[in-house]
Design a protein around this nucleic acid. Sequence first.
DNA 1: TAACGGTATAATTTTTGGTTATGGCCTCTA
DNA 2: TAGAGGCCATAACCAAAAATTATACCGTTA
Lengths: 304, 304
Amino acid sequence: MNISQFELLCEVARVKSFSKAAKLLHLSQPAVSSQIHSIENYYGAKLFERSTSGVTLTPIGETVYKYAKEILKLHDKLEKEIDASLQSENQKLVIGASTTIGNYAIPCTIWTFKEKYPLAQIKLEVKNTKTILNMLDNDEIDLALLEEPLPEKHDNFKKHPVSNDELLVIAPPKKPWVDKTTITLAELKKAPLIIREQGSGIRCMFEKVLSALNLNLLTDFNVVTEMGSIEAIKSTVEAGLGVSICSSLAIRKEIRSGVIHPLRIEDAEFQVNYLIVYKDKKNLNSTAKRFIRFLAGPGKNPFC
Amino acid sequence: MNISQFELLCEVARVKSFSKAAKLLHLSQPAVSSQIHSIENYYGAKLFERSTSGVTLTPIGETVYKYAKEILKLHDKLEKEIDASLQSENQKLVIGASTTIGNYAIPCTIWTFKEKYPLAQIKLEVKNTKTILNMLDNDEIDLALLEEPLPEKHDNFKKHPVSNDELLVIAPPKKPWVDKTTITLAELKKAPLIIREQGSGIRCMFEKVLSALNLNLLTDFNVVTEMGSIEAIKSTVEAGLGVSICSSLAIRKEIRSGVIHPLRIEDAEFQVNYLIVYKDKKNLNSTAKRFIRFLAGPGKNPFC
DNA sequence: TAACGGTATAATTTTTGGTTATGGCCTCTA
DNA sequence: TAGAGGCCATAACCAAAAATTATACCGTTA
């Protein structure tokens, strides 16, 4: 039995479903299924009653759940205590993140992390993907949070998936766009398109998907401007001067307030995978290691 | 982190040595070393100060040790509670053991097990190795405790090493023997030898070692009798009527009281490995699974 | 009865944890 | 102070565990 199995069990017990827990833990459903089986085998007792409408704890399952929560609580306390001991030796962590992640996802994650480890000292660098990779290479940052695919091969870097999101077309809430919720690539080709600069993770990812469809961003599309900032692009789109693409994370507020109209692309998969990237686990300080575990280790998804 | 890592850490902290802990846990020293390393990496902190005269806990190590003990205590309580819930459904365990193990090793092990799981219902069958294997095949017993090598191939059985011991020559505490502590095979060949019956694990193991040296028990040795019981053999040896071989476990009392004189064989390795053998883990009840874990699972050696 | 939501199973790959063999370092002893 | 012995670290290798994808199965529900 290990700590992550206790975490898994608690998550399953909480949401009463293997597949839901799998999603929340960034695992496949069979992984959860087999973990539960192996826990049941370990204790020699059935812990969940399976049915088509989810799963429920058996009486023994309830007992294990109760203790699992207690053990996890204890372990949490242990980690906090270690953290407190280590902070006396000045363990700073410098994280680099791409624009999208750095501006829209990570602030909340760091907040959650600091809630758990109040003494952690974290500095955040937000630059475009390429710059961040250079900084990682030059040891200016400890960890990088970027989107897949990385623009170049970096065999000396370790990568670990952390979360994922969908790329959307964003348009002004006006005439041709406002009454649809999806768009085809053919329509997008004709629209005035604003894109991020070369070196941006989102642009790299977009070009990759296009090239798989034998399309070229600059020749097949009607690119009207390149801009170096998501906020600038959003303002331009809001002003009705064109459409663009960006991660759904980055436009949550604008969608709620209705100033930007999002559209899904019908005929292509625009899934973005977010990665945590680092050079060598051994040379990282404990705050860094804990941060990796916090969001990449099996269990947990603190991208909020 | 998993429960057995906490156990390992506690054992290392207790005995203040990687290699001693390794022996106690039936592991190799590098295994302990690498586990400790991975725990240190997990928490991002050094837990032990290494020196040539053993290891000592660092302050953070002390903290982890304290919590590890608490977590283990909690987990123990959990297992006892599960046990209590399960006993209501009548979980009997029938263990079969070879003569040596059944008479001299297992009683104490069962006692230790019952101390931990007071509600466990265990029945012990003591027969010779061959008979026990038949009983296992016929589902008359759930688990078997035998010595390696098994007399025949049993591909449908799972085996797991549990402990080990040394085969000794036993002689009366008299003239030719009493002033030596070792014996050569050449001397043994000439001595009047009493052996166990065909089908005995000890005899099988002895013959196996001999055949590796191109020797045959019945033609190369002076076998004066075969006997079906260790106690009978011991009495015969005490009476001065010959020498025999048996596991050191079986003659602890006689050695202490001086009625039997043990001799190590100089020119051969007579190591006995004890195994736990079972058919299929899936069909075992929880008491059986827990018993396997109790003595075969990484960590623990309750053969006393 | 077909489609759907949810778990189980199978085949495969990756990761982890174990083993043996070996090396380096400190201490104790002659 | 050289050498032996004890102890931990490292390397190469192997087996077991745990992940993934693909697919089967099985009740509900439309």
